[in-house]
């Protein structure tokens, strides 16, 4: 079973929920947590395990072979992203604009633009008891998160059986990185806070999930601040609110130090159990 934890608005508690839920579920089940917020991966600050694997991650970028090129300009013509340009007697490749579609490389009549692997980030795997934790980290300066997210998902699919519980800590927002991170999930947990910003961005996230025809539920974090508009909205829309994680300065302090919350705050643990039960009850079944 694959469960993505997403939010729309940043800073609503994706990482808090992902890490606490992963460690809690791993008390009894084989869990794989993957941090797909590759631009700013934070789950690793809360999970302490033994590193079992590490690899560089690459994307393919065309590399100009001057000797083979006869400057026909086909590459520039076929590139929709202005990533390949013929300037005078040179062909220039702009890697940060390239989407790795291979069109220039494969349509070049002289085969003068072979694709070459370029490092875009790193993937590391850690183990802590029944929890496997995968962290993918985009190199600073790389602009596109989607290729690294896609390859990380492939890595998890290849290396772990479908019987384990796979949790994905998704990036914030509603654009392409979030689509990629939630696309394969059987269930998306949208975490929000009961504030006007939280509600506004939750609505956008729900719109996106509905377009993708995803099963989703809502978890309200920092319950007690703001107002009850989020709950009223979910009720009106018939959306299940799975849990309400309490607002407490003590929780913020634990988080600030990189500690898990549920071992220290019984009220948080009780709400986390509701989410855990929901997942284990649906494991292997339909949502």
């Amino acid at each position: 079973m694959k469960i993505a934890i997403a939010s729309g608005k940043g800073g609503t508690g994706k990482t808090t929920l992902s890490t606490n839920l992963a460690v809690y579920l791993a008390e009894q089940h084989h869990v794989v947590l993957t941090d797909l917020d590759v631009e700013e991966p934070n789950s690793g600050l809360f999970i302490h395990g033994r590193q079992t694997h590490g690899q560089d991650m690459f994307k393919l970028i065309p590399n100009w072979d001057k000797a083979a090129c006869f400057l026909c300009g086909k590459c520039q013509e076929v590139c929709s992203f202005h990533a390949v340009m013929k300037l005078g007697s040179m062909v220039m490749v702009f890697p940060e604009l390239c989407h790795s579609c291979h069109a220039c490389s494969e349509l070049c009549p002289a085969q003068a633009l072979p694709m070459q692997a370029v490092k875009m980030g790193e993937l590391r795997q850690y183990q802590a008891g029944k929890l496997d934790f995968i962290e993918s980290r985009l190199d600073v300066g790389q602009e596109q998160a989607v290729p690294l997210i896609a390859q990380s998902l492939e890595f998890v699919d290849k290396n772990f059986a479908s019987t384990c519980i796979k949790l994905y800590d998704a990036p914030p927002g509603t654009s392409c990185p979030v689509i990629k991170a939630t696309q394969d999930a059987d269930l998306v947990i949208l975490i929000t806070e009961p504030t006007p910003f939280g509600l506004h961005d939750l609505k956008l996230a729900i719109e996106t999930m509905r377009e993708m025809q995803k099963a989703f539920v809502v978890v309200v974090n920092r319950f007690g601040i703001g107002n009850d508009e989020v709950l009223r909205y979910c009720e009106a829309e018939n959306i299940q609110v799975l849990a309400k994680l309490p607002n407490d300065r003590h929780i913020a302090e634990l988080y600030s130090r990189g500690e898990l919350i549920y071992p220290h705050i019984p009220e948080f643990a009780a709400q986390l159990r509701l989410i855990g039960d929901f997942i284990t009850n649906h494991q292997g079944g339909h949502l």
Partner: peptide, 24 residues
């Protein structure tokens, strides 16, 4: 948020950046 393409776009041509952080 993040360091990807929207952030890179927002930085291009900027004169001054205000970084907002929290002690966590």
């Amino acid at each position: 948020p993040g360091i990807g393409c929207p952030v890179v776009s927002s930085l291009s041509g900027a004169d001054f950046v205000v970084l907002v952080t929290e002690p966590t």
